[in-house]
């Protein structure tokens, strides 16, 4: 009796552990490669909203508020720029402005916005 139970236990456990079929492999959730940037963006928005609220309840002086706000906005802009850089494909429909990171003349791409293209030397900026 005890032998039967023991063998059954071992067999069931091994079958469960080792019997992984191809259809058992879970399909991983699609993960955006820029998820950490999106997270960061969300966090800064949250901080900004929080900052506005704290200012409204009078916990911050006017100068503190302005300085912190500008800093946060700059950081946010940096993150937004990074996101655009990583995934430039679908430009926002409303935004007819060209991508400032791509040279309009030779289509060379750069890491940061430039006044003149490092490839063909022509002016990249259409407006400032």
């Amino acid at each position: 009796m005890i032998v039967v139970v023991a063998v059954a236990l071992v067999v069931v456990v091994l079958w469960f552990t080792l019997g992984v079929r191809a259809k058992d492999l879970p399909e991983p959730e699609p993960v955006s490669p820029i998820k950490h940037l999106e997270d960061k963006k969300a966090r800064i928005y949250e901080s900004l909203r929080d900052l506005n609220f704290e200012f409204r309840v009078g916990k911050l002086s006017d100068t503190d508020y302005q300085r912190t706000k500008t800093e946060l906005q700059k950081e946010l802009a940096g993150v937004l720029a990074d996101i655009d850089k990583a995934a430039p494909a679908p430009a926002p429909a409303s935004n007819t402005k060209q991508d400032p990171l791509v040279c309009p003349h030779c289509k060379a791409r750069f890491d940061k916005p430039m006044k003149f293209c490092g490839q063909c030397g022509k002016a990249m900026e259409t407006r400032s």
Partner: peptide, 23 residues
Amino acid sequence: APVEQRVLDRYKESIEKDLASLE
């Protein structure tokens, strides 16, 4: 390197808009 003012200017409008909708 600190984010340049120019980059901020480029996104400022959309930031303000998004933030206003959060408020």
